[in-house]
Amino acid sequence: MKFKLFILFFTFSVIKILATGQEPDRIIINNKEYKLLNNPLEKYFTDHPEHHPIYGSKNTIKKEGKEETIFIGSTSNHRGYIATFKIENNLLSLVDIKIQNPTSDEYEYISVFKKTFGDRKIVLNYTGILIIPIGKMLEAANFGYASLYDKYHLITIQNDNIIKEKELDKDGFMDFKVRQFMDFKKTEEYKTEVKNYYEGWNTSKEWDLSRKNTRGMSKKEIAQLKKKYELPPNEDYIYNYLFVVLNPDFVITNY
């Protein structure tokens, strides 16, 4: 229990000083639309990068007679798109995808589903656990999808087919998240994330302590920087940091 409480404390301490909350995808269940705290299309776009509505080959506009690639994104939507999914007949499907209107100064999203996929039937081949908040928000967190709700609907999907679903309260959900992340820690993907974290830390250290960056700093400021990078982060810190920033939905954990 102390371990879970530590993670909760760490989570809501870190998320208040980190990056911006993310615009979620959507999911329609029984004709009602909900926020979806997963991004099932990310794996699809990894396998089919040419279909990505932001970075794919079809993402061009005519400008002064020339075709230019559109790069649209914001701190509140790193993906650059909002996808809408639907659960029908125990099957997960994609029904729409929107991006910010590149020809408008207004903050508006337009559908590019037809332009991106045409008339093809999209097979997502998604396997993972969907997380859908269905209750009241208890604590807002301006980072990723880390806000806390009092009730969740979890749906386990295997190759786009529902194999299990259940509603959990806040305590049940946090218990699930901790156990799922402990399962994630046993995977090669976790080892890769830890390696990437250390590489990023070393890159930041090299730049922050470089002569180019410290030029103009006082001796006191440079000393503070050196102290900051005196020791690399320990394993517990990295574990809890990754718990906050990652959503290993592909790890199928019982709930």
Rank of each mutant, 00 (worst) to 15 (best):
I17T: 13
Q22Y: 12
E23V: 11
P24M: 06
R26H: 13
I27M: 08
I27Q: 08
I28L: 11
I29D: 00
I29V: 05
E33C: 08
Y34S: 10
L36I: 03
L36Y: 05
N38I: 05
N39Y: 12
P40W: 04
P40A: 02
L41A: 02
K43M: 10
Y44W: 06
T46N: 14
D47F: 06
H48L: 01
G56P: 04
K58L: 09
I61D: 11
I61W: 04
K62S: 14
K62L: 14
E67M: 10
F71L: 15
G73K: 08
S76D: 14
H78D: 13
H78M: 15
Y81I: 08
I82Q: 05
T84A: 07
K86N: 10
N89I: 01
N89Q: 12
N90A: 14
L91E: 12
L91Q: 13
S93Q: 11
V95L: 05
K98F: 08
Q100M: 15
N101Q: 03
P102F: 13
P102A: 04
Y109C: 06
S111M: 00
S111Y: 00
S111C: 03
V112E: 03
V112P: 04
T116G: 04
G118L: 08
G118I: 01
D119W: 03
D119H: 12
R120T: 12
K121T: 06
T127V: 03
T127E: 00
G135V: 02
E139N: 14
E139G: 09
A140E: 13
F143P: 06
G144I: 02
A146K: 14
K151A: 04
H153K: 14
L154D: 01
L154I: 11
I157A: 07
N159I: 09
D160A: 05
D160T: 06
N161C: 06
I162F: 08
I162S: 05
I163K: 07
E167I: 03
D169N: 10
K170W: 03
D171L: 15
G172E: 04
F176W: 02
F176M: 02
F181S: 03
F184D: 01
F184M: 07
K186V: 09
K186H: 08
K191N: 10
K195Q: 12
K195G: 07
Y197E: 01
Y198S: 11
E199N: 04
W201I: 15
S204V: 13
W207I: 10
K212E: 15
K212S: 15
G216T: 01
E221A: 15
A223N: 06
Q224D: 10
K227S: 15
Y229I: 07
E235P: 08
Y237C: 06
Y237I: 14
Y237Q: 07
Y237K: 06
I238Y: 01
Y239P: 01
V244H: 04
V244T: 02
P248I: 13
P248C: 07
D249I: 07
D249P: 04
I252V: 11
I252S: 10
I252F: 01
Y255K: 00
